[in-house]
Design a protein around this nucleic acid. Structure first.
Lengths: 202, 202
DNA sequence: GTTAATTGATTGAACGATCAATTAACTATA
DNA sequence: TATAGTTAATTGATCGTTCAATCAATTAAC
């Protein structure tokens, strides 16, 4: 078993076990024992591959963030989409099956609360927040003036995160996540239409 | 010290000590010792007045939720405000000094992640989310059709929570919270104007 | 003197990290 | 091919720490 590929396989298995453990017990009550048991390994392996529990936690957050990035890339690559379509793709990338899963929602919320006391997590969180804003801004700038685009991007980022949060905390998350996408897109249309019709204002 | 008023005074002191401890150490690392030390009391008093640490945690969340309610009541009571003004007051009640404070933001985020595994906290959280929506819906219904008002209320609730979340996690929370209020109100104006000018659509 | 309020040392459980021991894969040599 | 030797992967019992809860003892009010 001296193959270097083992490392990445084991690490990914442990990340997936972490998501399952957080879904089942919450991050608070996820221990190196619950996680390694789900992965079918011993507890010592976590320190071996991630330096400790904290390293595994950060790696799991990195995985979730990276998934958003990959999904968006796949959706917009080698297609010639309109700016509006591109904005819709951004919404969809933030509401994929994975991001709506119980495991992911519980994990994100736990990470947010830890991020306020952990510079490592805070940095990842910050980068992720900026990217959503930047992606939105890029597309809005093709439709609106610069100032309008900045405000539209900030509002849209807020509405996406807000709908995601309220859906995750809802007692009927499935239905709410679905409507969240619809209303997020409707908002984007409102913004685009609104500024396109300035001449109609009283 | 046999006066029944002691109980409420001590409880409030412990709730405020909890907020300070969560700000300083995070909920994770807030213990009955850090909290009671900040309050200048002994650790045993927490179990005595709240039944245990968990009871104090829930009481602190209740306090934060109640503050939003009280602030909004104070803002709209015995004034004859327009529906638009009322909507603005709802925004302001969610962005008061207390709610923007480091203690409150860290506490809210910690509670959210715990709420997904604690039915008691989940129930409080759910009631609070519903109230924001209901308050918004009431005012929007005076300006829009019922269907439009439902969508507007959902979007506005999401944008308020989303801006609050992104500001709390921002590296420059002070500036972001300030702009969050402005852009939340701007959004409300957009919605009202948008539906009021349907006749102008192409 | 009675009752309520408060203390804080103690207890026991939980948990992360450690690391010596074990297993498995691969390599070199005959 | 077989055997011994080397290295990497993995185990899990143990250790030290943290922390919530308990409750007998103490203090202070009336």
């Amino acid at each position: 078993m001296a193959r270097p590929v083992m490392k990445e396989v084991r690490q990914q298995e442990l990340i997936e076990a972490t998501l399952i453990s957080v879904e089942r017990y919450g991050l608070q009550h996820s221990t190196i024992n619950t996680i390694s048991a789900i992965a079918g390994m011993s507890s010592g392996i976590i320190s071996h591959y991630f330096g400790g529990k904290q390293g595994l936690i950060e790696a799991t957050l990195r995985y979730l963030i990276d998934q958003i990035k990959q999904v968006l890339l796949a959706k917009i690559s080698d297609k010639s989409l309109s700016a509006q379509d591109r904005l819709f793709m951004i919404v969809e990338a933030n509401f994929t099956e994975l991001q709506r899963s119980n495991a992911a929602t519980k994990t994100w919320l736990s990470f947010w609360s830890q991020a306020m006391h952990d510079p490592g997590l805070a940095r990842l969180q910050h980068i992720n927040n900026r990217r959503l804003y930047s992606n939105l801004l890029y597309s809005f700038k093709q439709l609106l003036t610069d100032v309008e685009a900045v405000n539209a991007a900030k509002q849209t980022a807020a509405i996406i995160d807000g709908f995601w949060l309220r859906s995750a905390l809802s007692s009927t998350p499935e239905a709410d996540f679905k409507q969240a996408q619809t209303l997020s897109k409707a908002f984007i249309n409102t913004v685009i239409t609104q500024y396109g019709e300035k001449k109609c204002h009283h």
